[in-house]
Computed example of a mutant assay.
Amino acid sequence: MSDLFYQTITPTTHDLGDFKVRRALPGRPRTMVGPFIFVDQFGPADLDIGSGMDVRPHPHINLATVTWLFEGAIDHRDSIGSFSTIRPGTVNLMTAGTGIVHSERSPQDERDRGPKLYGMQTWLALPDGQEEIAPAFEAISDLPVVEDDCAKAVVIMGELWGKRAATTTHAETIYAEIVLAGGGSLPIDAGADERAVMLVGGEASLDGEALELYTLYVLKPGEAMTLTSQTGGRAMLLGGEAFATQRHVWWNFVSSDRERINHAKEQWQSGAFPKVPGDEEEYIPLPDVPKTVSYP
């Protein structure tokens, strides 16, 4: 491993038939980078006409979900009555807090022409004292952009390159999409406690070290670096403040308290969570053995 990187994480790939999902966090090597406790990259994929993504209603507690698309569209519905069609350039932030249920499905117009799926799904653990805040939702498209002739970065959350996104942050968070043309470069700020970079398309390197596609590179704290590309590439920068207390993950539940997770399991099985208006007929049952778990 290069001296530039504190840790290199190869994601677990789940082949869902029409598209692949690559899960970098949580895993045995590491559970969090800043507040990010779940990092999925999916696509790129072109689905058949008439098909689509259908993630049935399911619950969350004590976290916030962040959806960011490079291509395609997803209809979001949740139990506090929110509806949003997620498209590239708009960040969807859903804060679960005490508990929320949501679904994610391909819009009908996407199904009619054959949906594209390419983007990121991440979860942020809520900090101490804020895990049980009220559920909330926001979709923000007026995001800061830093660009020159060969580089463009969208600040999705937090402050980077002197610009701050309007997106709510419960803990100190940085999150950005970086697109480089051939010969492009961009400095990677060194201010956050913990930072990681994932190349999600094309080719790029950090201070001359080539990045493998979809690998999550956890960067050494405090070291300024430069991301460059010879032929063009797309990368995600994520991180923020290091958490002093441990977070546990079981299925879609995140909490500092294992008993809180057990209570959420019981609530979902008993039907105590609220329904999603407009998507009330289906739901995902509580799994016996979830694919997403923490490793204390």
Rank of each mutant, 00 (worst) to 15 (best):
F19S: 05
V39G: 00
P29I: 10
R28H: 13
V39A: 05
R23K: 15
D18F: 10
I37K: 03
D40Q: 03
G27N: 14
Q41N: 00
F19Y: 15
Q41Y: 04
V39C: 04
G50M: 13
F38Y: 03
D46Y: 05
T31H: 11
R23D: 13
K20S: 10
P35S: 09
D46M: 14
V33M: 01
K20C: 11
R30S: 14
G27A: 15
F42N: 01
T31N: 06
R28F: 09
F38R: 05
V21Y: 09
G27M: 10
G17M: 11
G17H: 07
D40L: 02
T13P: 02
G17W: 11
I37G: 09
L47F: 13
T13F: 09
F19G: 03
G34F: 07
P29M: 03
V33N: 00
D40Y: 02
T13H: 04
A45N: 09
G34Q: 00
T31D: 08
F19V: 14
R23S: 11
L16W: 13
R23T: 08
D40G: 10
G34D: 02
L47S: 06
L16G: 07
F36I: 13
G17T: 02
P35I: 06
V21K: 12
P26K: 13
I37H: 08
P44T: 02
F42S: 00
D48Q: 14
D15G: 05
G43W: 02
R28A: 13
D15I: 01
T31P: 03
R30M: 15
L16D: 12
D40K: 00
G43H: 00
R28N: 08
G27K: 15
M32H: 09
R22W: 08
L47A: 12
G50Q: 15
R23G: 14
T13Y: 01
T13M: 12
D46C: 11
I37S: 05
L16T: 01
P29H: 10
T31Q: 13
T31I: 05
P44D: 01
D46R: 11
